[in-house]
Design a binder for these strands. Structure first.
Lengths: 330, 330
DNA sequence: ATGAAAGCGCTAACAC
DNA sequence: GTGTTAGCGCTTTCAT
């Protein structure tokens, strides 16, 4: 194995100089730098990660806690993961993947064994049992998702309330006065999953502001759920002309169900969705995308950036609504 | 920070004894063991991963190289990843996630910096540029997928040839004599992706054995591709009564296209697919599943198990065909 | 601008 | 069955 001493000898400098060339923590003459770099390349030197971690108390690793059986759409999850992994490399860090099933033990292990310099926890729920622990960790933490009490914690997520409001505003701008929200399964609301209730709140508040009538309809993630939702909403509200769908599993079925009820989209009913890009594009759907890449990148930035004592609190990304073929004025 | 010396003092033993209690590498009296374990718990001791790696030359980490823009269905990819992460914990290992875009540099980095004890590379193609490098690595490697020349490499995958054969045999058993294979996009064959050509070979060989006529039809991953495939196959082979679909993006469209051509499934045409479980179940499709969990678990076992000098070569998992609603006798 | 040397916290000989 | 001790390969004072 080629070590720092070998490089030092080869470049005719001391080991510390090699180290400083690598870390940039003190000025080194250009000539020396060049020689050291040449030797590093010539010998194919890579610093030993363990030794470095031991001496410097930094691992150059970010731990990422991934949900196992997620309520989140799997491709979106994957986008988070790859965005985090990719962005981590920009900071010369690697990603250690933990699974949610280790729960708080996993977090303790990371901190206790000095496995990582920072932790990113995905899919944090409103009353997440890991939140109290995260608050006490010395290791910097950022949460993807916003718990009920986010005090003292750094969080990133799409601003779901604003996303709901954006959808409603879009429909209101188009002249719709009676709008339905096809939401997540009832269990998701009861579990207190943040994004579901926040979207509903955002829609409700915007509706009040714009004097639009709204109904929220929890919807099971299958065709029958979608059919029931459309049937009940259409029957109960004959003047319903707008639909916000926040449930990626049923958007397609909702569109079919509307047609089955003789409602053309967008002539009779406009539909906006809050769902992954790919889905919206495939169905040519107006809607707000889940900016998974952006969230992942921001999470890494937040957790690694030497933020100057500032408590960044919750970073809520502004939703972007893209109008496509499923919305029209009336 | 609580270190091994603190535990030793607390338990009235030497540091090495604590170390040996943890590693089990030498016999320790039950009383001492108990005392040490008690102290560990009392002090909340976790060994420092870097220090351990430095002293022992083992990191307790597996590197997993994940494809970014994979030809593989994303949920399946995710199943691999979680299976690997979960199984790794069984061996008290963690998973370091690398992305394919680092290519060979990533592998060199893992080895050079002693980041991991073993490497698992997903989605290896027939002529994968990383294969030669992997062959020279000192770090144990296992590939998910089987390259053209797998000599000296440990691989795991579904036995795609056998999967193709199983599909054909199933149809032959049901009395079908003329069968079409709706395959991957032409580009996938040309790129030399292993599973695509292996399925085609497996089907062809089984067909020869069973005296069944077959045609392979490369198919673009969209509705039009599926329509073209069905149209051409049905027109060219009026007596076609079985279809093998190995292209998860089009299974659904193929079923629709068959109905559009007046062919009922399974009364007129039987359909078997090689695709992810969830899809097959959702469509109540007869077919062979991609055993992602099993493959991930096996990969970890292979790479971590102290295999006694034996070169395990390629581990090809036996396909399991589940008959469902889309196949019938004629 | 550079070197020398003292650890970082642990493991694994080598002792007994 | 247990203790002593010499590193593992690097970073970072402290010198100059």
């Amino acid at each position: 194995m080629v070590g720092i001493a070998d490089v030092a000898r080869h470049a005719n400098v001391s080991a510390s100089t090699v180290s400083y060339v690598l870390s940039g923590k003190r000025p080194i003459s250009p000539e020396t730098q060049a020689r050291v770099h040449a030797s590093i390349k010539a010998l194919g030197y890579h610093p030993h990660a363990g030794a470095r971690a031991l001496a410097s108390k930094r691992t150059n690793v970010i731990a990422l806690v991934m949900p196992l059986r997620s309520g989140v759409h799997v491709p979106v999850l994957m986008q988070f993961v790859t965005a985090v992994a990719t962005q981590a490399r920009e900071y010369d860090h690697d990603v250690l993947l933990l699974t949610q099933d280790e729960g708080e033990r996993g977090l303790r292990r990371v901190e206790g064994s000095s496995l990582a310099d920072a932790i990113i926890v995905m899919d944090v729920e409103m009353k997440d049992p890991r939140v109290p622990l995260m608050r006490t960790l010395r290791t910097p933490c950022v949460l993807i998702g916003v718990p009920e009490d986010a005090d003292g914690l750094t969080c990133v997520d799409l601003d779901f309330a604003a996303a709901g409001a954006a959808c409603l505003d879009h429909l209101a701008d188009l002249g719709h006065r009676c709008v339905g929200l096809v939401g997540s399964p009832r269990a998701v609301y009861e579990r207190g999953t943040g994004f579901a209730t926040r979207v509903a709140d955002g829609v409700a508040r915007a509706a009040a502001r714009r004097s639009v009538a709204t109904t929220t309809y929890p919807c099971e993630p299958n065709r029958d759920g979608a059919r029931a939702a459309v049937r009940d909403l259409v029957e109960a509200h004959p003047d319903l002309s707008g639909l916000i769908v926040h449930n990626e599993s049923v958007v397609e079925s909702v569109l079919h169900a509307l047609r089955d009820h003789g409602r053309r989209v967008p002539q009779d009913v406009s539909v906006v969705a809050i769902c992954p890009d790919e889905l919206a594009e495939r169905l040519d759907l107006s809607g707000v995308a889940l900016p998974a890449e952006e969230v992942g990148r921001r999470a890494v930035d937040l957790v690694l950036r030497p933020c100057g004592g500032e408590d960044p609190g919750a970073t809520l990304l502004t939703p972007e609504l893209t109008p496509r073929a499923t919305t029209a004025g009336r």
